[in-house]
């Protein structure tokens, strides 16, 4: 039982990261129906940004500022990617846009390799990691921070999407682009905003991921990116709430597999799960089914 609870907490930790990254996938998909393969690379760049802000300045920035600055620059990167690579392809066949996204993902990986080199950077801890004891459990402060901050940002996002005007515009665009244009919404700006928010949250996920595994390297975004994507599909692609639920579920499934089966089989089980979901409920937990009209 103790092991179980410990694993559950680990699962929530990993799950928070997946949830943050999955939100980016789901928001972008919801609005331009594109699987943004480059999202894993945003996550990676977010981690590099944090490393730079934390360790390469002559003075020590407070942790929260490191995070906010990294998120900000990741948001800019996200907007840039959309404007340069995806915008032109909005009306192109889906397969072209998807190939572009794959190309963008590879490009960013190798760009990072060129700038930072292939050898991993060791992410020294940015926060105090001494464990705190809650109900007889020693929990790392980092874990608490990861879970806490993730939930905080997710609440913030929900408030934004459901309570503010741009948030409502965003939902309008994702439901019907033409109607949104008629209502005077600037679709380009909304799409940029979506990329910005998704990228910022992805970067946050990347920072936590790097701190959890203490490493940063150019291809670090690939596997967690794929898994976060699976989480988004699991929750129902296009649904923000779904992405959060999916993220936590995948995180928990992954840690439980590691603890009770074997870490060797984690990827097989997670990818197997993806296939099972796609086959039996491709619309995911909270997604809606759509059929082509003839």
């Amino acid at each position: 039982m103790e092991l179980f609870i410990r694993q559950l907490i680990n699962g929530l930790n990993t799950g928070s990261i997946y949830a943050l990254v999955a939100i980016g996938y789901t928001m972008v998909y919801g609005i331009i129906k594109l699987i943004n393969f480059a999202h894993g690379e945003i996550m990676m760049f977010g981690a590099y940004f944090a490393f730079l802000f934390a360790f390469s300045l002559s003075f020590q920035l407070p942790f929260i500022l490191v995070i906010v600055l990294s998120m900000f620059f990741a948001a800019l990167l996200g907007i840039l990617i959309e404007r340069v690579a995806y915008k032109k392809l909005r009306k192109a066949p889906r397969i072209s846009a998807l190939i572009t996204a794959i190309g963008m993902s590879l490009f960013l990986q190798h760009l990072a390799q060129l700038i930072f080199g292939a050898t991993p950077y060791v992410m020294k801890q940015l926060v105090d990691t001494t464990p705190v004891t809650i109900f007889n459990f020693d929990i790392s402060r980092l874990t608490l921070l990861t879970i806490g901050l993730s939930i905080f940002f997710m609440i913030l996002l929900s408030l934004f999407v459901y309570k503010t005007k741009p948030g409502k515009a965003m939902r309008a665009v994702s439901q019907d682009k033409e109607a949104a244009v008629l209502m005077g919404i600037n679709v380009d700006n909304i799409i940029s905003l979506t990329f910005a928010i998704g990228s910022a949250l992805g970067a946050l996920g990347g920072i936590f991921y790097a701190m959890t595994y203490s490493q940063i390297y150019p291809t670090m975004g690939v596997l967690p990116g794929l898994k976060a994507f699976i989480a988004a599909v699991f929750g129902g692609i296009g649904s923000i709430g779904g992405a959060m639920i999916g993220g936590y579920l995948i995180g928990i499934i992954e840690t439980m597999t590691k603890a009770y089966i074997s870490s060797k089989w984690v990827d097989v089980i997670v990818f197997g799960l993806l296939i099972v979901i796609l086959l039996f409920k491709p619309s995911g937990i909270l997604g809606k089914n759509r059929k082509e009209k003839v």
Binding site: I95, L226, V233, D267, F271, L274, I275, L278, L279, P282
Partner: peptide, 26 residues
């Protein structure tokens, strides 16, 4: 898999490829 369309099929085959690689390793 072929019941699925477009990106979903892509993702499914991607998942399949990763599973094969992991199986070979394991």
């Amino acid at each position: 898999a072929l019941r699925l369309r477009g990106d979903y099929l892509g993702i499914m085959t991607l998942g399949f490829g990763e599973i094969v690689r992991n199986l070979i390793t394991n």
